[in-house]
Design a protein around this nucleic acid. Structure first.
Lengths: 224, 224
DNA sequence: ATTCAGTCTGAATAGTTGTTCACTTCTTCA
DNA sequence: TGAAGAAGTGAACAACTATTCAGACTGAAT
């Protein structure tokens, strides 16, 4: 008598798995990575602690998968925004703005994914996350360079630096604390975008134009 | 019969305290903050674990003091470099270069001080460290703005962003791994300095000049 | 209806480190 | 020199959580 998983069971298993991941994501969004502990996550997902281990071999694996998932969502949002732009410079501006807006609207989560202390080793998935997003930015910078809009440069290093600048300025410990005000939030997004564009060599005047252009479609997200 | 500490004893106590701090610093420089554990630090300092607690109330306090100390050294180096520069723009370039060089020559330590996960709460001293250094940078940017060399801007946010860019690009997980080669190292320092100066609005051509100028006195440190 | 593989449970376990404290050793002072 | 207070010691303790596992439960197959 061979036991075979019925379709219904397969679905339930998949649902549970994603419920656990989802609970982990909620916990991280609410309280940072520190809040992603097995017991609380299990409670949120309506399962016992032991059950978590039937779906994920370890906490490290659970968090890694969480990081991967969030990072993939982020990457596709960046791509979507960039591809909707009319030219390479606009695309770069759109990519930067998207990162800024997303990071700001999920500060705790972003901090958790990127840099918050965790007691297990998740360096590999964090590295992958950074590499993906920095890589996308590097591609956009490169396109603008090839189009003759920017001076030649080490695009990889530049992309990494931009990422660091965005994160530190917007969710690092020195980030302004009054970003709940939508106006201030939009200003912050514009300021860092301007900074980022100038950093890779966009002329000040032109950069200002690109920033305004890129912020316009993002207004809804920013809530202003 | 009142027991009074003799001069010799006072000196020995002070020496021990600094030996412990020094051992912690060595450990951090060698293996990051993760290596700063009470037992190993005590061994390095030639005392028993319990003795550490006669000098520091907790591990958090020990690490906080370590952060403060390193940060103070860093800040004075930045000031020295900036004050030796001929004008506000040069001073800014010198400050940025100094940070880059220092961070690179003590990568593990810098990462530990700034961002590495630690199991105790050291947010306060990390915050102070960032605030001091970012504040110094902000002052330099402000001076250049007042001198008419840069466009008006939110100098605090700009300084924070620059700090983030430098750290992420030079000691973050995506930092180039071949920085042991002095030539590559110098190139990286120049690249990020150029990026930083352009970010705050220095014209590309002028920025290149400032970078070369600022890197020259730092050559010895870079080892090239 | 009955069997049994698969799944779930949650109390118990285990490993890691910061911290304590009863005791020893050292230093001061009469 | 000896009494008393300070400083040092390190083995034992404590707290925190990830992980395990023996038994309970579910539902597929006959």
């Amino acid at each position: 008598m061979v036991y075979r998983r019925t379709h219904q069971v397969v679905k339930r298993l998949a649902a549970r798995r994603s419920a656990i991941l989802s609970a982990a994501r909620d916990a991280a969004a609410a309280g940072g990575m520190a809040a992603v502990q097995i017991a609380p996550v299990a409670v949120r997902a309506n399962v016992a602690a032991g059950t978590v281990y039937r779906y994920f071999p370890s906490k490290a694996e659970l968090i890694s998968e969480l990081i991967t998932e969030v990072s993939r969502d982020e990457l596709s949002a960046i791509r979507r925004a960039a591809e909707a732009a009319p030219g390479p410079s606009s695309a770069l501006a759109a990519a930067v703005t998207t990162i800024a807006v997303h990071v700001l609207s999920q500060r705790k989560l972003a901090w958790g994914i990127l840099a918050e202390p965790v007691d297990v080793d998740v360096t590999a998935s964090r590295l992958a996350s950074r590499r993906d997003i920095s890589g996308e930015l590097a591609m956009r910078i490169d396109a603008a360079v090839r189009a003759g809009h920017l001076p030649a440069q080490d695009t990889g290093l530049a992309a990494t630096a931009l990422l660091g600048a965005l994160h530190e300025a917007l969710v690092g410990p020195l980030a302004p604390s009054n970003l709940d005000d939508p106006i201030k939030l939009r200003d912050a997004v514009q300021t860092v975008t301007l900074l980022a564009l100038r950093a890779v060599g966009v002329m000040d005047a032109r950069a200002r134009g690109l920033v305004v252009q890129a912020t316009t479609p993002a207004k809804a997200l920013v809530g202003a």
